[in-house]
Design a protein around this nucleic acid. Structure first.
Lengths: 192, 192, 192, 192
DNA sequence: AGATAAGCGAGACGGTACGTCGCGTCTTTCA
DNA sequence: TGAAAGACGCGACGTACCGTCTCGCTTATCT
């Protein structure tokens, strides 16, 4: 009586999900030190070889786990104003990153720091996120095209800084405070 | 004729320096993957036990190496204007972090991500750096007390984001661009 | 092209043999001081973990090596007389122990002296050897049952004494001399 | 307040005794695995360097400890008969070796097996003991000169065999049994 | 329908780094 | 000035993971 149906000579999608879930769960519950390939395999109920068949190593698993999760979190807001859109986006982003995803983000950077391929993947992933935010900003004429990218970098710089360095708060209040600050760049009268 | 004088029953300061230097050199020349305790010991010409006698593990060595180095880099500027002081400080900080110290900073975060004690040390270290910058900003009346800390966080957030995530530029130009952006918060007319 | 065929998830018997052979060779060629687990592993072309997977430590390897070897050395003689059988057995035993096996026997005792489990194994091994000799003696009526065991002990006592303490000769002459002495116990007229 | 008076520039005899006593006590109470130079030094209340000033290493300490002890144990009997003298000598020797000295003897062989100098010392020591017994036997005309040495070897062979291999009994009964056996060699009528 | 092929859980394998322990040497400090 | 204290360079210990491999099985696809 197998715990998971065999799929014969086709890749077993359930096994893939089990690996990603196990990775996420281990990082959250037991910390990054417990994230070994063997432990992932055992937790997922999967053979180690199955992991190496589909991922080049532990780092790649973390990257895929994190990107899989992060992509389907932050929707694109449309409130009609820069203020509203930016505030909504930053709030969504911060609360997502500050919650259950936080250990995953930390794990992703740890993986990137010891694997250049993963570092490249992380760079690509974050570039995509910044582009989304920059696009949103440019929809509003008040923001110069030249300003959009730097502003996006300030948002994500603050986010990662708190995730990685200070373990600082990433909630609605933090998002509001940062939004206020950024709006004083976008619209100088704002902070008046 | 020993390569290094014994100091009898006192800690050998030369051995400590050799370990920190070896750590810095390995991170810079061979990358983080080569930073094993055994390799540090060999490079420093030191027994492994000597390392474990004084440091709890590899992570702690990296932390000490980085803090040792980083503390004696950025001097306190005094040009008389916010613009001048901030620009000078950010430029010094960025060029320091963007040069030889970059692999060390990356190593420090890698170490912090796998050791809570080191994470606390890193948090303390970075808090000290932010405080220095915030103090500087507050010397100028144009900056509200409440604004100083957030501004400092934007500076270091950007710095670490580029070091860790995007491997982005950290030079005088990058410092200028960021300074311009921040001055639009400090002094709304500036960006006018 | 691997130097040794993998056997998948079954124990690799070739690796086991390589370890035992390496142990024997090291003890003989380089002495007991060179018998470290790492050196055995390197000589056998085996990972250290493979050794620890199957043996609790160096001592157990030596025990297995020695018993493996010693068991298939001394055949059971059958000349028809006590004199002939005893002489043949002692000669075979002495020449075996006095030749290439000598460093192995010394190593086995060294191992037993630092590991109680190995000591028990050694006791069992030697008891078996004594029993073989005692059985042989009892096949001849001239020897009382009560005498067989003590006589066997005299043989092996002498053997081990020379191996461990005096490094004395263990050859055909030594075997003859001891046999003569023992026969004066078995058959008082003999020495007359 | 030192536990032991310093003696200035002369060797401190009390320290030597403390080391030998500590060695004996550790071997007896904690087993051979606990016999490290550091532990001897601590137990003796002596600096490690003091040990290395007077002994070449751990093995030499064990050798000296054991010879020191063993030499002043077995007196020379004189009952007037071979039977009486031999029985008394073997009994004294066995009970001495079978009691508190047993771990010391085992330690001495362990030391000899890893140090050729100690092995030579042990060979010398045991040769001396055999000579004492052989001399005693030769005082009685019934024993041929040629027989004395082999007989002595049988006695000590049995002793060490039980100490090192079988952990067999070494008491008055064991001594009696062996003596009876040997007397059948010395005097063929004896075993009638 | 039987043969074949690929994925799977399992676990042994050759390696490498870990952190600890003991060795024998060295210098300082104390009495 | 000998001895305690203890740091040092060295190297073996036993453990934990890594990434590779073979095994014995299951299921889908191809003849």
């Amino acid at each position: 009586m197998p715990a998971r149906e065999h799929t014969g000579r086709r890749r077993n999608e359930a096994a893939r999900r089990a690996v990603l879930d196990a990775t996420s769960r281990i990082l959250h519950d037991e910390g990054p030190g417990a994230l070994t390939v063997g432990h992932i395999a055992d937790t997922a109920g999967v053979g180690r070889q199955t992991i190496y068949r589909w991922w080049p190593g532990r780092a790649a698993i973390v990257l895929e786990t994190a990107t899989d999760l992060a992509t389907r979190e932050v929707p694109m807001p449309d409130t009609g104003t820069v203020d509203g859109d930016l505030r909504a986006f930053v709030t969504d982003t911060f609360t997502a990153a500050g919650g259950r995803a936080r250990p995953l983000l930390r794990g992703m950077v740890a993986a990137a720091l010891e694997d250049t391929d993963v570092a490249a993947g992380l760079a690509r992933f974050t570039a995509r996120r910044r582009a989304v935010l920059a696009d949103m900003l440019q929809r509003h004429d008040v923001v110069d095209v030249a300003d959009a990218a730097p502003l996006a970098e300030l948002v994500y710089g603050t986010l990662w800084y708190r995730v990685l360095i200070t373990d600082g708060p990433l909630d609605a209040d933090a998002a509001d405070a940062l939004t206020d600050l950024l709006l004083r760049i976008v619209d100088p009268q704002h902070g008046g």
